[in-house]
Structure formats: structure tokens, C-alpha cells
Design a protein around this nucleic acid. Sequence first.
DNA 1: CTTAAATATAAAAATTCTTTCATTATTGGT
DNA 2: ACCAATAATGAAAGAATTTTTATATTTAAG
Lengths: 225, 225
Amino acid sequence: MNKFDAHILVVDDDDGIRELVKEYLSENNFLITTANSAEDAKEKISIIKFDLIVLDIMMPGKSGLEFTSENKNNINTPIILLTAKGESSERVKGLEVGADDYLPKPFEPKELVLRIKNILNKTKSKNIKRIIQFDNVKIDLNKLLIIQNKKEFKINRTEKTILEKMINAPGQTFSRESIGKIIDIEKERSIDVIITRLRKKIEINPKNPKYLQTIRGSGYVLWIE
Amino acid sequence: MNKFDAHILVVDDDDGIRELVKEYLSENNFLITTANSAEDAKEKISIIKFDLIVLDIMMPGKSGLEFTSENKNNINTPIILLTAKGESSERVKGLEVGADDYLPKPFEPKELVLRIKNILNKTKSKNIKRIIQFDNVKIDLNKLLIIQNKKEFKINRTEKTILEKMINAPGQTFSRESIGKIIDIEKERSIDVIITRLRKKIEINPKNPKYLQTIRGSGYVLWIE
DNA sequence: CTTAAATATAAAAATTCTTTCATTATTGGT
DNA sequence: ACCAATAATGAAAGAATTTTTATATTTAAG
């Protein structure tokens, strides 16, 4: 939808690092705004709502720790701290005052991108998928429909609840017990039946499931993509 | 309360690392159990409920990734992966399959302790309420029970789903339409009926609701506190 | 105070979902 | 290849939930 994945504020007094980070993150499809001090950052967050802040701890004037401590509770934005190598006490404090993650310097840019993406994923708990498509199958949890090779199947509440979980954790195994907990069903045999029914809707060939597979001894898994 | 901060399972095929980690974490007031393979770990988690799992990615037999993927959904336990330096694709996968954090090897033990503490903190404060109490009423969504003045009522899935939403947005009005969407019910009259049933369980005097009130023309609201 | 619209409620009817059961198929280990 | 354990499945029984119906009650407005 948006051209950028997220809008990130990078705060560091060191021009070199700041520009390096900016460049690297930009290449990775983030929109970057920079600030060279906590005070500068403070001003910018009062104007723009960022998706995440990358913040150097050690800066002249107000430190990254102070900034985090003062602002974390007023804004909802996740913060990643850049900390000095070895100074683990800094990191402890950082997490204590509300930072979401930290990265000891010097760091690999890749690492930063990785941690950013991870946090954005977690905080964006709103990005729960409700409509997915793969091969010739479309699952629409809003309309409670599965369309498979032009055939249309209704799904019921139970099936919806299971799919909701599985779709948002593809490749992860769900034991019968855990599925039972999700949908408040007690008997494990009932879950077999529900899976059989689901397969008839999802699978081209239900007898030889491609997507909703059995993990013998463990449970079931949804493979998409 | 407990003598230890948390019970942690350390999984690594390398005896040296495993023992080193164990020793260091023990010194930091964690109770440590070890496993030397994913298979071994699997057995142990079936017996003991750990607070956290530290898991090497690269192991003979089942890899840490596979273990995470297969088990993350069935246990509720946070997982920290130990990954090879440089192998950032491993880390991406790790997070994708549900790991909560990772640490590239070689790592400083201090760093591990820090990340463990951070995760334990976060997971402790999941703020979705599932058990609440007010006046003489206790609602337990886990046990699917409402206890009101020593009377005990079962609640069904529909009721649970509605309460789940309302409890976490008290004071917010829910239109019949929005309730219907939550529980996949079409007819608005049916929702009247469901509310009536709920009131019999929650309210001391269902005819004169104190908690689950009607907002004429708009819907219903749950007032607690 | 009356009235019309909205809500409440009990009970029955209709529908949907869960469980059971009997049988067959598949899988992994020896 | 064989065995035992696990899983799949169709059909039917059993339970539970949703919807309808019919009637009563409450509310806001004039």
C-alpha cells in the first residue's frame, strides 16, 4: 500500500554513523528522518508519528537513555538503542526505561535491519492476515469463504478460528491439544474430524494433503508458499 | 517468592558451550536444565514447564529451527536462538518460525543474561486480561466460568468471545452489529438473547443490570470498576 | 399520559456443531 | 514385509447453539 515499509527516526550525534545508517536503511525500503540530538529528536516526534526510533545512547546533551525514559510512555513508538560495546549496564538501563531492543556498537547494518523488522512485526500485531491466496486457493476469513478451483465453500466459526491461528503461523505445528484449546473442544477425535472437513475445502486432493498436513505424533501444520 | 528467577532449558549439542551457559546462568540465579539435542529437549518440555528455552540452531538431528517451528505453538515458552555469526538468513527464519530473540555466536554470557531478562519481563506483562474480578463477580475466561455470589455458571464459546472483547475495552459500547461480527452471528435478535443469557450469569439482578448495560439505540457496554 | 420504537425474555423450532463409532488407510520401526 | 500405533473418514447420534415466535416491558418523545 505505502511506498515505504515504515518511517524511522535515526538519532545520533555522529554524522558518519547517522548517514551510514540512513543510507543503509533507505536501501532497505525504510523512509528515514534523522536527528542529531535528543532535543532535536524530541522536536521531531512532536510533529511526526514515527513507526520506530533508532537511538544512540551516548550523545552530548541529553542521553539516549534519558530520551527514552522521558518519552517512551508518551509515545507508543518502539525504540532500538545503540549502545557501546561492553557497557552492559547501559543496556540493562535501556531496557529498564522502556527500550524495545538494543544493538552493541559496532554493529552490522544487516543486524540492525533484522532487529527493526522483528520489532515492527511484533508491534504491528494488527497485521494479522485474514485473506490469503496461494496456488488456486483463496481463504477469506472475513467472508468465511474458501474458494478452491472455482469451487466455493463456507467455513464455520470453528474452522475460521483454527485457520486464523494457522494462517498467521504458517509452518508451525499445532498439536491436537493446542487446537482444542483454541476452539474449546475437548475430544481429540473431534479435531480429526474437523481437519478432514477442512481438507475437503482447502485441498485439491484431500486424500493427499499439500497444505494442511499431518505431523505424525505431533499434530497438524499449514504450509503455504 | 521462588528461590530462582526462572527455570530455563538450555539446548546445545556442544558440551562445552552447554556447560558454560549453564554455569553462567546458574550464577545469575536461574535454575537450569540442559538437553543435548532437539529430541532430548522435546522430551523434557513434555514433562517440565520452562519459563524460557535457549536453543542452539545448529545441531545434529533436528535443528533448532525445526524444534522452534514444531513446538512454539504448543508451549507458551519464549525461545532464544543461538545462531552462527554471519548467517543472517538463519536469524530471519528463526524469527519467522516464532523465536522471540536470537544471539549470534560467539556471544558474551552477559549479553545472554540480559536478553533473557528482557524477554522474561516482556512476557510477564501481557496485558490481555482473561480473569477479572469486581464486587462479587469473577469471570475466568480460561476456565470458562463466571462465579457470582458463590453461584457458578459455565460460559460457552460465544459468551467467552464476547466477554474477551468487552473485558479488554470496558466502557466501550458494542453495537449489535459489531458483536455479531465478532462471533459470526447474523441476526440481531439473537444477540439480545445472548445478552439476556449473559446477564443471568453476571448480574446479581438481571432485570436491572449494573455491569452489562444497554445503550438504547447503540448497543451494549460492560462497566467494571 | 399515550404512543411508537426499542429492548427483554421464555420457550419452541431449526440449525449447526461435536462426539461417537466402525472401518479403512497410512506410517514408522523392527 | 509385517506389526502396532496413529491417522482418516463417512455416517449417524447426541449436544449445543442460533433463530424464530409471541408476548411483555421499558424508554423517549410529544
